[in-house]
């Protein structure tokens, strides 16, 4: 497993060159933006249960066949497995976001995931749709752009109430990890 710093070390070692100038500037940026990154990880972990259940509810709303007899979220046992997997994927994404590197996600979650799902008969399309919904809500939580959605009187949505700033780079990075999962499933 690598983080942003050890990734720089491994690629510099391949060239037997010390790390200076340009590479250090990128790492200094990681350090300077460190608090934002920790807030972003916190935004995901603090809302993990909400993000996951929302995503699984979403795929069922879009495809009600999933919870009818013979569907892949029927009975509760399989629905529970679905929620569990959503949480696992989100957890590895939070690790990757904390480390600033996708290697932990690749090595420990995505390697062989597609083959496992095919063998178990899990529909890849529904799985990647759930990840796409998690991406939308996670990035909204990080950026604090989450809204009440289509229901104007809905009050049960939450803002993290951290100091607002430019989080576009972090949101793009987090989104890239979700896209990585979707890419691995397709």
């Amino acid at each position: 497993m690598l983080d942003a710093f050890s990734r720089a070390v491994v690629s510099a070692d391949a060239k037997t060159a010390p790390i200076g100038g340009g590479e250090l500037a990128a790492l200094r940026n990681y350090v300077a933006e460190g608090n934002k990154r920790l807030d972003a990880v916190n935004a995901i972990t603090s809302n993990a249960s909400c993000i996951v259940s929302d995503a699984v509810t979403g795929i069922i709303c879009e495809n009600t066949g999933l919870i009818q007899a013979g569907g892949n979220c029927y009975p509760n046992r399989r629905m529970a497995a679905c929620l569990r997997d959503g949480e696992i994927v989100l957890r590895y994404i939070s690790y990757a976001l904390l480390a600033g590197d996708a290697s932990v996600l690749d090595d420990r979650a995505l390697n062989g995931l597609k083959e496992t799902y095919i063998a178990l008969g899990v529909p890849l399309q529904s799985a990647s749709r759930a990840v796409a919904i998690m991406k939308a809500s996670s990035t909204a939580h990080i950026n604090e752009t989450n809204t009440s959605g289509t229901n104007p009187v809905e009050t049960r949505f939450r803002k993290m109430e951290t100091v607002k700033g430019d989080c576009s780079a972090l949101v793009a990075e987090a989104a890239s990890y979700f896209d990585r999962v979707i890419g691995a499933l397709n």
Binding site: D3, F5, S6, V10, A48, L98, A99, V104
Partner: peptide, 24 residues
């Protein structure tokens, strides 16, 4: 490669939990 972040993530992963406040 051992560093603070990888150590923290390894411990969190072994326990199967999200990064905690302590980790952050």
């Amino acid at each position: 490669m051992k560093s603070v972040v990888t150590t923290v993530v390894t411990a969190a992963d072994a326990a199967g939990r999200f990064p905690s406040q302590n980790d952050l």
